[in-house]
């Protein structure tokens, strides 16, 4: 079976996100007011084959925890979609 995993990786909430802070400071330059917080992370998609959704889930979980995210500084979540 073919699956696509949609993964979100975000800087941990207790950590300073300098990119997000720069965006918060500069949104008023576009005329956008009232923004109190912006946090910038990554979105990753993985296309994969696996015998079952559970096995696809396990593979993606391993990829996230070992390589795509560093849990010291980032959190992640994902959804798996059957193709």
């Amino acid at each position: 079976m073919k699956f696509i995993a949609h993964i979100n990786i975000m800087p941990k909430t207790e950590l300073l996100d300098p990119q997000g802070k720069v965006v918060v400071k500069n949104l008023p330059n576009l005329g956008i007011q009232g923004v109190s917080d912006v946090r910038i992370g990554k979105h990753v998609t993985i296309a994969l084959e696996a015998p079952s959704e559970q096995e696809a889930h396990d593979k993606v979980e391993l990829a996230c925890s070992k390589l795509l995210a560093n849990v010291i500084m980032e959190s992640y979540d994902f959804v798996i979609e059957a193709q």
Partner: peptide
């Protein structure tokens, strides 16, 4: 640090 031979992590510099 990534290999967990040392604790912690190195993040993007505070001032980008």
């Amino acid at each position: 640090c990534e290999a967990h031979l040392l604790p912690g992590a190195l993040l993007r510099n505070r001032d980008q």
